[in-house]
């Protein structure tokens, strides 16, 4: 269970003050899929960053399981992220001059996974995304869809409880994007991680079990989207 309670995020001071999130509260059950939707600049990424401990809220709290994220020290938040969370970004962020193998290895190294267990975990993850034939290819030589599959392999290799995905299909064509999302949802069923999907693609959002729609930093609606919001 992820509980987001009265999150507020303010950028700047005085005249320059900008409120990116206003009093945002909701909770997500374990192993579910959630879409955060809204127009550009509505605060989707900001919310995701705060939920994952990358950023700090101005006020409010994020409780994951029994852990109150912002009551921990920076190093403990890092450890928590290394063990429980992973990320998929719009522009992939794979290390182009390293092999797929090395790319997927990174989270295991950071989480200090036993060295003897790493190799099989990496190969398993690459197999799960269909990149078993590209293990020792450089990531830079992959196509966009393959890069995002590599990023997914990297995101699932450490069996995180939450996967944050910020516009994972934003840089892909529709067909490739669909394939990526099928893969992601399939893995969610298989591995049982919670998926927090940031998107402005409402069709995609509909495939999630829960939707949180942001407007100018506050929650306009929760749950199943209305037909009006779909337009």
């Amino acid at each position: 269970m992820i509980t987001v309670n009265k999150l507020t995020k303010t950028y700047g001071k005085n005249d320059n003050e900008f409120v990116a999130l206003k009093d945002v509260s909701f909770s997500i059950p374990d192993k579910s899929t959630v879409a955060i939707t809204g127009k550009s600049g509505s605060g989707k990424s900001t919310l995701m960053h705060i939920m994952s401990g990358l950023d700090r809220p101005t006020s409010g709290s994020v409780v994951i399981g029994k852990t109150d994220l912002y009551k921990m020290k920076a190093n403990d938040i890092d450890n928590f992220r290394a063990n429980q969370m992973s990320f998929i970004f719009q522009s992939f962020f794979v290390e182009a001059n390293q092999t797929c193998y090395r790319n997927v290895m990174l989270p295991l190294e950071i989480a200090k996974i036993n060295i003897t267990k790493r190799k099989s975990l990496v190969l398993e993850a690459l197999k799960a995304v269909g990149l078993e034939s590209k293990v020792y290819n450089l990531a830079g030589t992959l196509s966009g869809g393959q890069k995002q599959r590599l990023a997914i392999a990297r995101a699932i290799v450490n069996r995180p409880s939450i996967v944050f995905a910020d516009e994972p299909t934003g840089n892909l064509d529709t067909i490739t994007g669909d394939k990526i999302m099928n893969l992601l949802f399939g893995l969610n069923e298989k591995l049982g991680s919670t998926i927090v999907l940031v998107t402005h693609d409402l069709d995609l959002a509909k495939r999630c079990q829960m939707q949180i729609h942001l407007k100018d930093g506050y929650i306009e609606s929760k749950g199943k989207l209305t037909s009006k919001q779909l337009i």
């Binding site: 920076a74 992220r81 990320f87 962020f93 950071i110």
Partner: peptide, 14 residues
């Protein structure tokens, strides 16, 4: 920069 950002996001300590 991006590599460092990624490593930090994945929980690598400062």
């Amino acid at each position: 920069t991006r590599e460092i950002g990624l490593m930090k996001a994945l929980g690598m300590h400062k």
